[in-house]
Design a protein around this nucleic acid. Structure first.
Lengths: 142, 142
DNA sequence: TAATTTTATTTGTATATACAAATATTTATT
DNA sequence: AATAAATATTTGTATATACAAATAAAATTA
């Protein structure tokens, strides 16, 4: 059943949830070849772009709670993709050589994902839609 | 940090996830007084509206996987809000008297939630936005 | 009618996520 | 300097969600 046929099609809760789950699935496909979930992949890319980035900053950038970020980092650590160093109350997260080797492939995956949805929604359309979602999300900030 | 300041602000994955989490939080507030999560509340309202509704139909309406619907029903069962009867391969889900007593309050909660986001986003704006999200979600159907 | 396929539902298991509390460190205040 | 407050991170625990496999029943086909 399409969401536009559901009884709750006018409800923001359902609509945003359903969209996120569908996008999640689409994104997951793009990173499956690297055996990473989208969240892990995005975190890793942030760390590759700025080695030593701290959990708090990652949490801000990823719009995820600090505890979630810790959990994501832990998993990437077991995969030997990042290492943590602690000095005082601060933690720095660094990519391993193994992660660095993956950098180009990661970029390709981002691009593949982008091309996939842009092909369906249209480049301009999807860009506009994303901007609109950001606006709404920021407005809902309490 | 606002999502519009994040490095991934142009990414559909992040954008849709962040929005859904924020909306989830907003919705959860509205149902907290009934000690229900939004998903449980919506499922319950479907069952109240059409007693005997089957898990498969609920799964369709809620845009959730069948197994997730089973889990939601199980929880509502332990709260004595629904009961299941099985005949053959079909299952029917019925609201209990306790659930029926809650019906009006549930409707109020839906309304409160709606008013809350409509006040922030504007009635027309939010309706348009929701329609647009549905369109995108349906397009992403694979 | 027997065998096969399809359909409906549940179960086992895994995941991402968050809240609240705990820990540890730094900064500010008195 | 000692105490208090703020900050950064992690841990314990709980949740919603889904996939894949299992179960069971109904519908179709041979």
């Amino acid at each position: 059943m399409k969401i536009s046929e559901s009884k709750y099609k006018q409800c923001l809760y359902f609509t945003s949830g359903a969209l996120a789950r569908k996008v999640e699935k689409l994104a997951a496909e793009s990173w499956k070849k690297l055996d990473l979930s989208p969240s892990h992949a995005y975190l890793l890319m942030l760390v590759l772009g700025e080695p030593g980035m701290q959990p708090g900053v990652l949490s801000d950038e990823l719009q995820l709670s600090p505890s979630t970020v810790t959990r994501l980092i832990e998993k990437l650590e077991t995969k030997k993709l990042v290492v943590r160093t602690t000095e005082g109350k601060l933690t720095n997260v660094y990519p391993t050589p193994k992660a660095k080797e993956m950098h180009d492939t990661l970029k390709l995956c981002v691009n593949e994902f982008y091309e996939k949805y842009a092909a369906i929604l249209g480049k301009e359309e999807s860009a506009k839609f994303v901007r609109n979602m950001n606006k709404v999300t920021d407005q809902l900030e309490i």
